[in-house]
């Protein structure tokens, strides 16, 4: 056991206690938490800082407003209902189509207006919020994911998670929904985590739970070697989030929209640690590298470039080779 602890330390793996004690406490001031915990506030911030986000259709704060939801939606066929203070992706209802009075959710199930309203009242009641406080439901436009990703996802929207430390992107991964995760990009629910090389934006090996996967279980496509489009822009956006919400250690969740390019879906003040497993790398050495830079002022793009240069995998090699390399059994 001691050996394992030492090995993990050497590999620079960050544990939950260390993340909380050494990073979140130090770099994330509590007063800025609402800026990310409340998705509505977060969206306003993002817009103020010119960061692209999915359009907000409307916000429902009171029970009596729920009756107006049908007016608010008009004849929209696609939208997403989210709890403003939800956690872990709970309570998100994705509507992808409409047939008369019925909506179609991401799994292809029929949802009638009553069910939709009930879901929204649950959200407002606070069933999904931390601590069960009354919450607000936000309805935003559906992201049409970039077809570039279509071979790597089953339903749902794959997203890209970038950990940003003191404004520097330090690690990235993509979360690919699977049939098992019911189209959700949530690793706990069975989505595949894929490490992305910061330097090149090329995916590396995938991880499902704790085991390595080389191919998407539902589409059969090879996971490694995929070049994420607009990588520079993604890192640039992530770096700018630091100025927007002033959190020293944050996770930016980004989706690629077919028409709008990368959009920031949400930010996280306590980003999970699975990204290390997806990347097969401990994150600590990179955090230390950023710490070593000191407090010199750099613009977000300078920081993004620094990260690409310094935190990329040493062997960011051509597509085919890295694909075979990572499909080797560990």
């Amino acid at each position: 056991m001691i050996g394992r602890i030492l090995a993990l330390k050497k590999a620079g793996v960050l544990g939950l206690n260390a993340r909380n004690g050494d990073y979140i406490f130090h770099y994330n001031q509590r007063k800025y938490y609402p800026l990310v915990d409340d998705k509505i506030l977060c969206k306003e911030r993002m817009i103020r800082y010119d960061l692209p986000v999915p359009d907000l259709i409307g916000v429902l704060r009171e029970m009596h407003e729920v009756a107006d939801v049908s007016d608010m939606l008009g004849d929209r066929k696609e939208f997403v209902v989210k709890p403003a203070n939800g956690s872990g992706g709970d309570g998100i209802l994705v509507i992808v189509g409409r047939q008369g009075d019925y909506f179609l959710d991401a799994d292809g199930r029929m949802v009638d207006m009553d069910t939709l309203e009930h879901h929204i009242t649950n959200v407002i009641g606070g069933i999904y919020s931390l601590g069960g406080q009354p919450d607000a439901a936000m309805i935003e436009s559906l992201v049409h994911f970039d077809p570039a990703f279509s071979r790597l996802t089953y339903h749902g929207v794959p997203d890209i998670r970038v950990i940003v430390f003191k404004g520097y992107p330090v690690m990235a991964m993509s979360r690919l929904p699977t049939r098992r995760s019911h189209g959700k990009a949530n690793l706990h629910q069975g989505a595949i985590g894929v490490g992305i090389d910061l330097g090149s934006g090329i995916t590396m090996g995938g991880v499902s739970g704790n085991s390595a996967v080389s191919h998407h279980p539902d589409t059969g496509a090879a996971i490694a070697g995929f070049h994420v489009p607009g990588w520079n822009q993604i890192l640039d956006m992530s770096a700018r989030c630091y100025e927007a919400v002033k959190l020293g250690y944050l996770g930016a969740d980004i989706v690629l929209d077919r028409d709008l390019g990368p959009l920031i879906l949400e930010l996280n003040a306590r980003p999970g640690l699975n990204i290390q497993i997806a990347n097969r790398r401990g994150i600590r050495h990179r955090l230390d590298a950023v710490d070593a830079i000191g407090d010199a002022k750099h613009t977000p793009s300078e920081r993004a470039v620094w990260s690409m240069r310094n935190l990329g995998e040493r062997k960011a090699e051509p597509v085919v080779e890295s694909a075979t390399a990572s499909s080797l059994p560990p």
Binding site: L8, G15, A18, N20
Partner: peptide, 17 residues
């Protein structure tokens, strides 16, 4: 003030080692 690993993390992060 304990910021070391949790017991379950030893298993969780095993692939990294």
């Amino acid at each position: 003030r304990y910021t070391g690993f949790r017991l379950t993390e030893l298993r969780r992060f095993k692939p990294l080692v």
